[in-house]
Amino acid sequence: MSVLFQLMAVFFKIGLFTIGGGLAMLPLIRSEMLALGWMSETEFLDVLAVAEMTPGPMAVNTATFVGFRVGGVAGALVATLALVLPSLLVVCLLGAVWRRHRNAPASVRVLALLRPVVAGLVLAAALGLFAACVLPVMIGEGGFDARTIDWRGLVVFALVGGATWRYRVNPLLGMAGGALVGFVLYSF
């Protein structure tokens, strides 16, 4: 079996059987790579570091990079497209059904509940991200210690959040500005 075909099979399988997003895929990709002997543990960690620093969804970046390492340019294309293909098929199959029943009373009620639930999920994600990059570990020896707060992160968070809230700045500008302010602050 050629490497390209194997890549396609592996990533199609991972794309089809993970529900819950890209982060749930990373352990699967790791175990497949180790089992197939395509990568060592440290090589996979390198791939993750790069996937985090390059733009795009992290699982897609990981698949692209793994495909590239294993099968060159063709491998990168095959792995990425194979990862996305199951979702495309599911969306096309369910999309037509969904379109027909979007305005059915049951759908309207489900959506009425889903909207605030998603808002709550996003709020929790934002708070979790905030805690991860600004607050210290709060539960532990000695409890909360204000001295361990990352004030640089707090400044960037407040500046970007405030500017977006007040002036609706372009999120790209917010990210670039935040990275630059952070760069200056973290240099001290």
Binding site: A132, G153, L154, V156, F157, V160, M175, A179
Partner: peptide, 14 residues
């Protein structure tokens, strides 16, 4: 550079 990106994304998301 990435150290500042994370709190920026947190601010946008909030």
């Amino acid at each position: 550079l990435f150290a500042g990106l994370r709190p920026a994304v947190a601010g946008l998301l909030l």
